[in-house]
Amino acid sequence: MSNFRHGISDTLVLAKRSFLRIPRAPDLLLSFTVQPIMFVLLFVYVFGGAIVTPGYDYVDFLMPGIIVQTMAFGGFVTALGLAEDLKKGLVDRFRSLPMSRSAVLAGRTLADVATNTVSIAIMIVVGVLAGFSFDAPVAHIAAGILLLLLFGYAFSWVFAFIGLSSSSPEASQSLGFILIFPLTFVSSAFVPVDSMPSALQAFAEVNPFTIVVDAMRSLFLGAPAGNSVWAAVAWSIGIAAVFAYLSVAKYKRAVVR
């Protein structure tokens, strides 16, 4: 029991550490404030006019997709931070302390939830200013925000694994982008899936991003949900569980570079 209590307190100590970084090295702040705004404006006003989305205004179609993408990338701070901790020997220090083996990772991923919350708020405001409107009961909208945070949390664990696996902070960042960009673009996030060539379409239909984006469209816009909400929750929990396991295993064997 005291192990469990220590685990929680260690995680909070380290989440606080990750969190304190934000105002002190505000360069990262750009990536979860300015960057999402830029993406929204870019897609709505540059690509929007050229993309046909039957049944929706493009801005309505886009917002659930682009927020999901932002959530997926929100965890890159975890990858970057872990790669830096490894490089600077901090992981060695933490691993030599009588603390929980998962707290360094759990602390960072927890801090990501807070920054992801900020990103969601900013994007919704910008989206509304650009013409987005919800078309669903408040409870569904709230559930949608929770789903976004859960999905973002799952990807923080993916990034934790990337951060522990890459040779430098820079490498962790590009590795993350290379892995996640294709997944977000070959999905229903930005264009209707049936506009893609059939091979891509087949991939896009089973892509968890499509499932989560579809779930978000049903929760924010009242689109027919099918099983997509439960499937999205299942995918998120599954991704989080698999990558949390892999990351903690990797962390235990982590070596200074």
Binding site: R17, R24, A25, K88, G89, L90, D92, R93, V256
Partner: peptide, 10 residues
């Protein structure tokens, strides 16, 4: 260790 293993942002 050989590294000053301290957090620069604290």
């Amino acid at each position: 260790g050989q590294y000053a293993a301290v957090d620069e942002n604290l």
